[in-house]
Protein backbone atom coordinates (compact mmCIF):
# COMPACT_ATOMS: atom_id res chain seq x y z
CA UNK A 1 0.00 0.00 0.00
CA UNK A 2 1.30 3.43 -0.92
CA UNK A 3 0.09 6.70 0.61
CA UNK A 4 1.10 10.19 -0.46
CA UNK A 5 0.37 13.54 1.23
CA UNK A 6 1.52 17.12 0.86
CA UNK A 7 2.44 19.36 3.81
CA UNK A 8 2.27 23.17 3.70
CA UNK A 9 4.99 25.34 5.20
CA UNK A 10 4.01 27.52 8.20
CA UNK A 11 0.56 25.94 8.49
CA UNK A 12 0.76 25.36 12.24
CA UNK A 13 -2.99 24.87 12.57
CA UNK A 14 -2.92 21.73 10.40
CA UNK A 15 0.49 20.42 11.48
CA UNK A 16 -0.03 16.81 12.46
CA UNK A 17 -3.00 16.12 10.20
CA UNK A 18 -0.98 13.79 7.93
CA UNK A 19 0.39 11.90 10.96
CA UNK A 20 -3.18 11.62 12.23
CA UNK A 21 -4.40 10.21 8.88
CA UNK A 22 -1.56 7.68 8.67
CA UNK A 23 -2.13 6.65 12.31
CA UNK A 24 -5.74 5.81 11.43
CA UNK A 25 -4.58 3.59 8.55
CA UNK A 26 -2.02 1.79 10.75
CA UNK A 27 -4.70 1.13 13.38
CA UNK A 28 -7.05 -0.27 10.74
CA UNK A 29 -4.27 -2.61 9.58
CA UNK A 30 -3.87 -3.89 13.16
CA UNK A 31 -0.20 -2.94 13.37
CA UNK A 32 1.01 -3.59 16.96
CA UNK A 33 0.35 -0.50 19.16
CA UNK A 34 4.02 -0.20 20.24
CA UNK A 35 5.06 -0.01 16.57
CA UNK A 36 2.30 2.49 15.76
CA UNK A 37 3.51 4.70 18.59
CA UNK A 38 7.16 4.88 17.50
CA UNK A 39 6.23 5.28 13.82
CA UNK A 40 3.78 8.07 14.57
CA UNK A 41 6.04 9.93 17.02
CA UNK A 42 8.85 9.96 14.42
CA UNK A 43 6.45 10.94 11.65
CA UNK A 44 4.80 13.72 13.68
CA UNK A 45 8.20 15.25 14.55
CA UNK A 46 9.13 15.11 10.85
CA UNK A 47 5.81 16.65 9.81
CA UNK A 48 6.30 19.48 12.32
CA UNK A 49 9.81 19.95 10.89
CA UNK A 50 8.40 20.46 7.37
CA UNK A 51 5.91 23.02 8.70
CA UNK A 52 8.46 24.75 10.92
CA UNK A 53 11.60 24.79 8.80
CA UNK A 54 10.89 24.17 5.12
CA UNK A 55 9.23 25.72 2.08
CA UNK A 56 6.73 22.82 2.07
CA UNK A 57 7.00 19.16 1.21
CA UNK A 58 5.50 15.72 0.92
CA UNK A 59 5.13 12.60 3.05
CA UNK A 60 5.10 9.18 1.41
CA UNK A 61 4.26 6.01 3.28
CA UNK A 62 4.97 2.55 1.87
CA UNK A 63 3.44 -0.32 3.81
CA UNK A 64 4.35 -3.96 3.40
CA UNK A 65 3.70 -6.98 5.62
CA UNK A 66 6.92 -6.69 7.65
CA UNK A 67 7.97 -3.06 7.42
CA UNK A 68 6.85 0.53 6.95
CA UNK A 69 8.91 3.04 5.06
CA UNK A 70 8.36 6.78 5.33
CA UNK A 71 9.92 9.31 2.99
CA UNK A 72 9.64 12.92 4.12
CA UNK A 73 10.82 15.32 1.43
CA UNK A 74 10.82 19.10 1.41
CA UNK A 75 11.72 21.81 -1.07
CA UNK A 76 14.52 23.31 1.01
CA UNK A 77 16.24 25.35 2.33
CA UNK A 78 18.21 22.32 3.56
CA UNK A 79 20.33 21.70 6.65
CA UNK A 80 23.85 23.13 6.41
CA UNK A 81 25.28 21.25 9.41
CA UNK A 82 23.52 17.93 9.89
CA UNK A 83 25.78 16.83 12.77
CA UNK A 84 24.77 19.93 14.72
CA UNK A 85 21.11 19.47 13.76
CA UNK A 86 21.19 15.89 15.11
CA UNK A 87 22.55 17.12 18.45
CA UNK A 88 19.87 17.13 21.11
CA UNK A 89 19.21 20.68 22.26
CA UNK A 90 20.51 22.37 19.10
CA UNK A 91 17.75 24.28 17.33
CA UNK A 92 17.28 26.94 14.69
CA UNK A 93 13.56 27.22 15.40
CA UNK A 94 11.81 30.58 15.41
CA UNK A 95 9.82 31.97 18.33
CA UNK A 96 6.65 31.00 16.43
CA UNK A 97 7.73 27.35 16.42
CA UNK A 98 8.57 27.46 20.13
CA UNK A 99 5.14 28.88 20.86
CA UNK A 100 3.69 25.77 19.25
CA UNK A 101 5.46 23.60 21.83
CA UNK A 102 8.38 22.55 19.63
CA UNK A 103 11.78 23.97 18.69
CA UNK A 104 13.79 22.57 21.60
CA UNK A 105 16.17 20.68 19.34
CA UNK A 106 14.66 17.28 20.05
CA UNK A 107 12.92 16.50 16.75
CA UNK A 108 15.69 14.72 14.84
CA UNK A 109 16.88 12.81 17.91
CA UNK A 110 13.28 11.71 18.62
CA UNK A 111 13.09 10.54 15.00
CA UNK A 112 16.39 8.66 15.31
CA UNK A 113 15.35 6.97 18.57
CA UNK A 114 12.09 5.68 17.13
CA UNK A 115 13.15 4.49 13.67
CA UNK A 116 15.11 1.31 12.83
CA UNK A 117 16.95 2.82 9.87
CA UNK A 118 17.29 6.55 9.27
CA UNK A 119 18.87 8.21 6.23
CA UNK A 120 18.96 11.98 5.78
CA UNK A 121 19.99 13.56 2.50
CA UNK A 122 20.43 17.32 2.80
CA UNK A 123 22.73 20.27 2.19
CA UNK A 124 22.50 24.05 2.40
CA UNK A 125 20.12 25.54 -0.22
CA UNK A 126 18.91 22.04 -1.16
CA UNK A 127 15.88 19.89 -0.47
CA UNK A 128 15.97 17.59 2.56
CA UNK A 129 14.90 13.98 2.15
CA UNK A 130 14.44 11.88 5.27
CA UNK A 131 13.95 8.18 4.81
CA UNK A 132 12.86 6.08 7.79
CA UNK A 133 12.36 2.35 7.98
CA UNK A 134 10.39 0.61 10.71
CA UNK A 135 10.59 -3.17 10.97
CA UNK A 136 7.33 -4.51 12.34
CA UNK A 137 7.75 -6.89 15.25
CA UNK A 138 4.79 -9.14 14.56
CA UNK A 139 4.17 -8.34 10.91
CA UNK A 140 1.34 -6.16 9.61
Amino acid sequence: MHLNYSVKARDFTSAGSVSSAIKKVLKQLNIPPADIKRIIVALYEAEVNIVAHSYGGTIECELSHDRIELTISDEGPGISDLTMAMTEGYSTATEEVREMGFGAGMGLSNIKKNSDVLAIDTAADSPTIIHMTFNLKQGG
Binding site: S19, V48, M100, G101, F102
Partner: peptide, 9 residues
Amino acid sequence: NQAIRTAEM
Protein backbone atom coordinates in the same frame (compact mmCIF):
# COMPACT_ATOMS: atom_id res chain seq x y z
CA ASN B 1 -3.81 22.48 18.40
CA GLN B 2 -0.42 20.86 18.91
CA ALA B 3 -1.23 20.03 22.54
CA ILE B 4 -4.20 17.96 21.34
CA ARG B 5 -2.24 16.51 18.41
CA THR B 6 0.61 15.49 20.72
CA ALA B 7 -1.85 13.75 23.05
CA GLU B 8 -3.41 12.01 20.05
CA MET B 9 -0.02 10.82 18.72
